[in-house]
């Protein structure tokens, strides 16, 4: 490799033809750019505009300035939604990532039937948002559900895990960790991308498995860890489906699972306050964008790229 590099450098010095790749970039980005202008931009900017109106879905929007934004800050349920969402993001994202990475390492190689296990462990993530799920959760987490039956066997009296305000959010976090399939698959793909020659070289150097993990796997996997972190964060802030299903769309019991997006949906479609919902959405965008920006800045210190 070093040789190639050497040669490449000489060649480049000789030809000196590199400027930018503007033309190629235009070509490669053409579909994306068309999509951005034609499909993504209008709804995005329309919602920004609507966030300054009293749009009700059924009535033409009327300009109200920043009224929606100021109203948000005197809405106790808005703060409850923020609290629920932040708690969820802070607890569940790291937990899920650790679970996903751990399982990806276990299921990576070295055992027969791993393909089967991988598929089995991915199954819960396949379930999606089917209405059947609400019934399944009650079966497992209900006051008379499976978990409490197991607990009763040990003489412990359980709770209605999804129906008690003190436990519902915790249960949703567990549920989220349980569907670690997607990040796990991405980790698996990432592990496969690590060239085996590094391990061989390290093995020749006499590095143990732990050291190989720390010095090769982790550094080379950091772009993927970073990707999962950023995307899980963006996704967790917008958590909707699980909470919608478990609480029957109310964010209950007693607003304990009133996720930000759930509240926003309730406002937009339930109360016909789409202007307010749009304002909430753009406030959320600011939060997420801020978090993501911090992530990108921080990534300079721990993510390794080859370029």
């Amino acid at each position: 490799m070093a040789v190639i590099h050497e040669v490449a450098r000489t060649r480049r010095a000789a030809t000196e033809h590199r400027k930018g790749d503007g033309r190629a970039a235009a070509l490669f980005l053409a579909p994306w750019f068309v999509g951005l202008v034609l499909i993504t931009a209008f709804p995005l900017l329309a919602s920004l505009y609507l966030s300054f109106t009293d749009y009700s879905l059924l009535r033409a929007p009327g300009w109200v300035g920043i009224e929606n934004y100021t109203a948000m800050f005197s809405d106790p349920r808005f703060f409850q939604a923020l609290k629920v969402t932040f708690t969820y993001v802070i607890v569940s994202v790291p937990l899920q990532l650790v679970a996903a990475l751990g399982l990806a390492l276990v299921l990576d190689k070295g055992l027969k039937g791993l393909a089967f296990y991988r598929s089995i462990y991915y199954l819960p993530s396949l379930l999606g948002a089917s209405v059947a799920i609400a019934i399944l959760w009650r079966q497992v987490f209900g006051a008379d559900g499976l978990i409490n039956q197991v607990l009763a066997f040990f003489g412990i009296e359980g709770q209605g895990w999804v129906s008690h305000p003190d436990y519902a959010l915790g249960t949703l976090i567990v549920l989220n960790v349980w569907t670690f399939g997607a990040p796990m698959v991405i980790f698996l793909a990432g592990l496969r991308q690590v060239p085996t020659m590094y391990y061989e070289a390290a093995a020749i150097d006499g590095a143990g498995r732990l050291r190989q993990f720390r010095n090769i796997t982790v550094p080379l996997l950091t772009p993927i860890i970073f990707f999962n972190l950023v995307l899980q964060l963006i996704g967790a802030f917008q958590t909707f489906t699980q909470a919608y299903i478990v609480s029957g769309g109310t964010g209950g019991p007693v607003d304990s699972t009133l996720f930000y997006t759930l509240y926003l949906y309730e406002k937009g479609f339930g109360s016909f306050e789409m202007g307010y919902a749009s304002a909430m959405a753009w406030f959320l965008l600011l939060i997420i964008a801020g978090m993501t920006a911090v992530n990108f800045v921080a990534s300079k210190y721990w993510v390794f790229y080859d370029d």
């Binding site: 709804p43 995005l44 609507l50 963006i234 917008q238 909707f240 959320l284």
Partner: peptide, 20 residues
Amino acid sequence: VMLMSIMLPIHVIIVPQYIL
């Protein structure tokens, strides 16, 4: 810009999308 496009919940962009 690309990343930003996935930071808005679908519920506020579905109506403009439908109109489009």
